[in-house]
Structures are given as C-alpha cells and as structure tokens.
Design a protein around this nucleic acid. Sequence first.
DNA 1: GACCGAGCTTACAGCGCTGTAAAAAAACTG
DNA 2: CAGTTTTTTTACAGCGCTGTAAGCTCGGTC
Lengths: 342, 342
Amino acid sequence: MRKVRLADVAAVAGVSMKTVSNVVHDYPHVTPEMRRKVQQAIDELGYKPNLTARRLATGKTGMIALAIPEIDHPYFSELSRYIAEEASARGYRVLVEQTLSNPAAERAVLNDREAGVVDGVIFHPVSMNSMEVARLKRDVPVVLLGESTMPVTADHVMIDNVVAAQEGVAHLLAQGRRRIAFLGVVEGDVTGSTDQRLLGYQQGLVDARMPLDPRLILSVTDFTPEESARAVREALAAGLGFDGLVCRDDRFATGALYALRTAGVGVPEDVAVVGWDDTELGRWATPTLTSIAPDKRELAATALQLLGERIDGYQGIGRHRIVSHSLIVRESAPLAAAVLSS
Amino acid sequence: MRKVRLADVAAVAGVSMKTVSNVVHDYPHVTPEMRRKVQQAIDELGYKPNLTARRLATGKTGMIALAIPEIDHPYFSELSRYIAEEASARGYRVLVEQTLSNPAAERAVLNDREAGVVDGVIFHPVSMNSMEVARLKRDVPVVLLGESTMPVTADHVMIDNVVAAQEGVAHLLAQGRRRIAFLGVVEGDVTGSTDQRLLGYQQGLVDARMPLDPRLILSVTDFTPEESARAVREALAAGLGFDGLVCRDDRFATGALYALRTAGVGVPEDVAVVGWDDTELGRWATPTLTSIAPDKRELAATALQLLGERIDGYQGIGRHRIVSHSLIVRESAPLAAAVLSS
DNA sequence: GACCGAGCTTACAGCGCTGTAAAAAAACTG
DNA sequence: CAGTTTTTTTACAGCGCTGTAAGCTCGGTC
C-alpha cells in the first residue's frame, strides 16, 4: 500500500492540490462544500501530511534542540521537562542532544555540520568558556543556559548565582554557623560555572565580616556524588572543622550527606547543608535537603521566549536574562528558630 | 548572505551536483583531484548539507521518537540516556515525546497525524492497555517498553517482573523477614503494569509457603513519593505490622523510607525495604536502597536492535524480548549475614 | 589501431509540499 | 445587466537533495 500524497487526495476529491492543502491548514477562504468533499477524500484515503516535505517547502522545522551535558542528572532532566512543556505549548518539538560534557560534542552543537534539522538551539555548555562560545558562530539561533559568564553577543538565561550563594551563606550564618565550607570546585572546570557560586559564598562571608579560610573550599575532580563524598570524607579525616556546607549542586550535597552520615556527623546538628537546584534527589534525602531553587519553569519559559524571538527574526545584540530563585528550607539546614528549639 | 546550496558548490567547483553529493558522502569512486576541487569549494563557501532536503529525497529521517510518561522521573531519565547513547551509536537522533501519562497524548503517539517525522518509535505506554495498543495501527515501526502485557503483534522489551519480584521477596525472607508488604498498587492503573510485580511478590510468598495477607498490599492513588509516604504512614498508623517491604519502584521506596524514618521505624532493623529500577535516587538514599535493577543498557540496546530491524523492513510477527535484571543489595535490605552480625 | 569494459561523471526527474500569481467564480453596483 | 470588486480555486515553480540511467574517459587487448 503506497503512501497517500496530497496529489492523490486532490485527484479523488476532484480539486487542486492547493485546495487540499488549504483544507489541511484550515485556511479560512474555502467553501463548506469544498471542505466537505476534501475532508471526505482525506478520511477515505487516510491521508497524513508529510512533515519533511512541508519543512522543505516552508524552511521551518518546528523543532528545537536542547543540548545538555547529561540527561539523567536530576537538574537537567527536570529542566528538560519544563523545556519540553514550554516548547510543546509553543508548537515546537524537542530534540535532545546529549553532549556528555565532551568538548568535541559541544563544539559540534554550535558548529554544526548540517542545516535544516532544527530552527533553534537551547544550549547549556560546560566544557567551553565564553570566548570559545563567542568564536563559534552558528547559523541557527541559540540561547545559552548556565552559570558561567557568556559572550555579550549571545542570548543567555541564568539565575543570579552570586546573590543566591550569598543567601545560602546568610541562611547558615543566621543559625549561628561560623565555619562554613564550600563544596566543590571542580578541577579542570574551564567554564567558571562554579566560580559565580564560589564568589557569592565568599561575598556572603565577607558581608558578615567572617574570615575566609581557603581550606574550607573543597575541590573535587569530577561532577559525581562519589567524588563529593570522597572530598568530604577526606576533609573530615584531615580534621577540617566546619559546621556549615554550601554545595554547588544537589548531587554534590547528596554525596556530602552520605559522607557525613557514614562518618557519624549529624546533619543539621553538627553540620548544616545547603544544596543547589532543588531536585527530587534532595527533596527525599535524609535529612531532606535545604536547597537553592532556580525557578526552572521561568528559566524554560524565558529561554523559549528569547529563542522564539530569534527564530522570528530578531537580530539584535545578546539579551542576558536573570530569572528568579529562592531558598527552599528543609531539614538539612532549617530555619534558625527550628534549630534553637531543638 | 544566502544559504549555500549543493548547486552553488557544484558551480564553483565546476562539476555536477551529483559529484559534490558523492564527495559529501565519501562515495569511493571519485578521483582525488575531483575530491580536492570539490572539498575546496565546500570549505570556501561554508556549505552545509540541508538535512530536510536529504530526508525528503531519501525518505529516511534518521530520527526516532522516544515516548515516555515523564522525562524527569529517574528511571525514565536514566533510560533516556542509554537510549540516546545507543541511538547515537547507530546514527539516529532522538526526539523525546513526553506523554505525561495522558491517554490522548499516548494515543497520538501511535495514531499520529503526520508522517515523515521519525523512522520509528520506542514507546512506554502507561494509560493504554494491551488491547488499545493493538487496535491502533501505526505506519511507523514501534517497539514497546514496559511491564504490562503487550499485544503479540508488536515488538516488546521488558524484564521478567514476576521472577524479579520473587527474588526480592526471597531476599527478604532469607533475612528472616516474615511479614512482607507490597507497595503499591496504583488505583485506576489500567495497564496492569504493577500486576506482574505484585504477582511475583505473591508467588514469592507462596513459594516459601507463607500466608498471603491482603492487608499487606498497600495501594496508592498516583505515582508520587508523596503518595507512597502517605500510604506507608497510614499503614503504620493503622497498626499494620510488617518487617519487609517490596516497592514497585524507587520513587515509592523513597517515599516509604521517608515515612518510616519520620515514624521512627528503623530501616533495615525494623523494616527491610527493596526498591525497583536502581536509580540514583536510591543509590544515595538513607539508608542506601536495595533495588531490583533492570539492565537498562541492555534494554536500550535491545529496543534499538528490534526497532532497527523493523526500520530495515522486517515485517514478521511481534518479538518479545526479556532482558536481564539483578538485585543490587545495599543497606535498606542487606544480605542475611549482615543483618545477623549487626 | 579499433574495440572493450571498468571507472568516473553527468543530466535530470523526482521526493511531497507550499507560495505566488493569475484565472475563475461569485457577489455587488448603479 | 455590463462592469467592477471580492472571494475562491488553480497551475506551477520551486524548496535542496539523491537515485537512476546514460555518457564519457582511458588504459588494456588482440
């Protein structure tokens, strides 16, 4: 059984192809009788428009790519969900491109070898710094996500990481914590993605006239809970005293909670922990994790808004949008009152 | 600056379009000199082949859709990752279609209104039963995932849920647990997706000549940790005694751990808990979660294998493949020896 | 040296749809 | 009712690429 084409429907209905096309698209100027005749032929033949052909003719694909490091990391999977929902609401489908933090894969996202796949790209780089991103000029509109500084030439959506980290630190200080550590700086991280958060952490301490102790900045070799657990375990073993911990993300916090628990350190009694991203991982951790929560829905909506404008032809300079965040207080770092009363 | 087309390259290189096409595709019978000339023209003009046009000409899109209920559920996001990797290894890109468990959205996956978007679909239905799936006949090849029974007409990949659940129960019995509960049957779940697991749970008890107590089967109203926590909390409040718990997935187990902890019930001392899916959520839970682990990589590889064969024209009857699973033992339900020694 | 076949290259007709411009039909108008 | 305007329908040229079949080269053969 051969594929049914627009021309077949036209032949059966005894009208031109264009009229069939008009019916398919609900074009207003079609007489009811025509519409009926055509619709009947469509139903009879089981006609389904071929999107590839439509795309070739119109030059629009109705698809956007979402390029993220790893889809199974809670922050990215939750973000994907919102992006998918927002995209769907705007009539786009989402092609997920997993870069696995691989520089070559990331470069390929911007420097793509082929055209006509998607109308735009939402890209969260991790292995490229701002200059590299700026250098690769791409034909298709791009909106960047992520914490690191991005070229002024490109659209970019993020939360105010410095302020958020300051708030995290302030929250711990308000509980009377005095030795607050930061976990973790990732070795070889070229994006400076953690820098903003680290900066905010330091700023938060300075604001409160607290000393900065470089030993309180824990570093890790990669982005895994295993590594963060290792870093915390070693810090404890080395006798590093701390009563508060701000983590660069919930996965790090999760590893930290594990290390603290197995070392017999109480959370929040001995150490209060603040995570970042407010993922499901933290919502059900033990203790449940206080976390800095980017407004993911707003992030997704903003990214799609900017991308949509670019797709529609906006040519201006890069827009940099800050979306809101909040501190979700849970057990790992409760409100001051809760600690006092315990 | 206009788009560069194959014809433009051909004109600059002074050859035919087809020769350029042959160079782009690394077709062997092209003389080195031609290849050089053409390549130079390609580089000079910055030519990028238009995939939409290629797709129209070849009739292949090189894309597959992955239709899952919710991308941010750990099991699905982890599965997505493997599917994406396997697909990428086979030269396919993945279009993620989130059905949100919505019957209309699921029906749309099979009954699609348009052609030429993807070459095949990997679909994990949750709101359709076997008969409905069978009824909707689709033009594009489909491979089904998921625990429920599926029509013999379609390809289907799953683990042996009955055996896996039996093993979970056996593991608990080996520790001396005698009152083992099952969490949870989802009200209004038409797929029977949980049925296999429940069946295995019952079979496991029967195998050991243990009594079946219907009160030990906890039901929930939806697929959230909140709901499972509620169900466990109420069971405890109602005085339901149990010392083992098999959960239909890690998210339920996560909610259960929370409810048990807040009720002061020790895990694993008082109740040993087995989850399902072996997600990151359980790997870092407190206590770390013993879980039934489908081999997700094998699942993804098998699904893509079957789908690839269908795309390549295989027309035979539905294949039903069982992929392997294992029980990952962690703290929430340790080995018998570990319990005895504690 | 005419002929042959293998190796390269080319011309061109689609793939299925939409945009444009023009034709045809219908609806007004005075 | 001829002339004008408006609405509806049509014909057809692309969109950019690939497959096919035919044409051209050129070294090897007898």
